[in-house]
Each structure stands twice: as structure tokens, then as C-alpha cells.
Amino acid sequence: MNEQTNTSLAHDLRLALLRSDPALSHFDPLPRIIANDSFAKGHCGWSQLVGNYEGDLDTMLPGYAQHSSAMLSTLSHWDAGSHGGMNSSYALKIATKPVAGSRNVAIKRHTFRKRGPIRLEAYVTFKPEANELKLSETDVRSFGFLFDLQGGDQDGDALRVMPHLRFLNAENGHHTQKWQFKQRTSDIKPMGAEDKIVSHDHLNPNDWQDLPGGGQRLCYNEIPTKVNWTYLCFDFDLETMQATGFRCNDRVFDVSGFESIKIPAMKNLWCMLNICLFAETDTNKRAFLYVDSVCLSGDF
């Protein structure tokens, strides 16, 4: 066999193994799986995004002060009992407070070994708290995800790069249903007096831009306690620090107009590879983002 045949055989074998593995066949991972999180295995390292502070928790920016811990949920509802996940009883649940505009964020923190392609895949669903007997389809403002990245300490081009994508489901009661990204964060503010810790609220409500062609009607189902799982896949190249692909269920979106938040590198975040998942509520009702499973993979 020549080298080309060997490569093709290895590819086919890998694909066959992936597709015959019930834990992985619902994903299309790149060659190396960095994390394969299924929440019947526990929280899998997903914790709350706590804001920076120094000396006193009162220094934490308000956007972060509202965050609380994600939980393991069976999607239990008053009318139908536990809904459960796709392959187990459990999903990770990210819940906002019942105050319009509130958000909550779960984070998983890694570093990377090589600046190359990475892929984030997940199965998620969203609903508001089912405390009214009506459809409530415009109560959740958005759900979304982001990477928080920084190049290596020897890289001449190192920046802190934060690609954000959210599904803006509704805004001020209007059922918008479109994908958005953002290129700007808030002002970077010092925490305390020691000039060592700063903070910026990159998920503040301002500066979201529509992804060109990014309108999408997702499966919301007919009452607040019925959910359907939605597939997300986001490709990013750590070498060029550019998005290279985004799909949601059957739709593949053009990311040529997508840009990330880019700010100067910070002095202690080298090779950072963080993932955040978040939810925002549009009304005085809790918004819930449920995450059945997450796969982070890379080509290295």
C-alpha cells in the first residue's frame, strides 16, 4: 500500500470507530478529542464564570456579580415530570435570575498545545421557567457560546481573542431569532489598587452585530415544558485566530463576515482556551439553557 492509501484507510477506520461509538457518533470531532462531556458523568469541569475582584467582592463588575453555579438537571417540569437528556437522564442547566436582562454563564477552562484548528460541538436547548400556562416563546432573550483565547508566550502576534456567538431569540418581546456576534468588549477596568487584576464585561448587552444570513427558526415546541435538542458546531483556527465554520442543525452559515473581540494580550493568560456557554432572559422570568453534551476537538 502506498502512503495515500494508508492515509485513506486510517481516515476510514477512524470514521468507522467514531460512528460505531454511541458516546461519539452524534459528533463530528476533529482528530483529537480534547473533552467529551456528557452530564450523566457529573459537571465535567463546567463551573460558574466568576468575575474578577481584588480586596472586596464589591469590586466585581455587576455583569459578573449576578452569575451563579450551573446545575445537573433532569429537565423536571410540573406537568410532565423529568424530560431527561438525549442519552442519559441529565443535562447541564444554566439558569438566569428572574429579572429582565439577567444572564448566567458557565465556563470550562483549558490551555492549548498547538495553534491549529479546533471545533466546539454541543447539543443544547432553551426554555423559560414554565410558570405560566402559555407558549412564552419570547421570554428567553438569547443563548450562546464563546471562546476566550490567547496565543502562546513566545508568539509575536499574541492577542486575547474572544469569538462570541449568540442566538438572539427575542429582544424586548420581539421574536427576532437570529445569530449575532460581537467585536467590542467594555472598558477594561482595574480591580483594586495593586495594578495586577483588571476586568471587562465582554458579555455586556451592547455591540452585538447580526451574522450575515444568520436568521434561523429553531425547534421551540408547543408548550414551555417540551424541549428538543439542537446541534451546534463552531470551527475556529487558533493559528490565524479566525472563525472557519458555523453550523446549527441543518444550516451552515457563512462566517466570512464574522469577527472576534480582540484586545491586547494579558500578562498571565498564555495559551488560554476557555469555553463559555450562556443564557439571557428578556423578561422577569428565569431563562434556562440546557446542555446535553459538549465535544471539544482539535487537529494537532
Binding site: 457529573g42 456579580a65 451563579s68 446545575m71 445537573l72 428565569r286
Partner: peptide, 25 residues
């Protein structure tokens, strides 16, 4: 499994106050 969840942080409670609901089944 075991977990430490921070359900309320640096909030000033008065009157009747409660932590956010947490699922722990």
C-alpha cells in the same frame, strides 16, 4: 459525584429573601 455550588454571592438580604432554585436530585 460531589459539588460545591455557590448559589448566592455578596447579596444583601432583607425582608424575605431566598437563594435561587437549585436542582440536586
Amino acid at each position: 459525584e460531589n459539588i460545591t455550588a455557590v448559589v448566592t454571592r455578596n447579596e444583601t438580604w432583607a425582608g424575605v429573601a431566598a437563594s435561587e432554585p437549585y436542582e440536586a436530585g
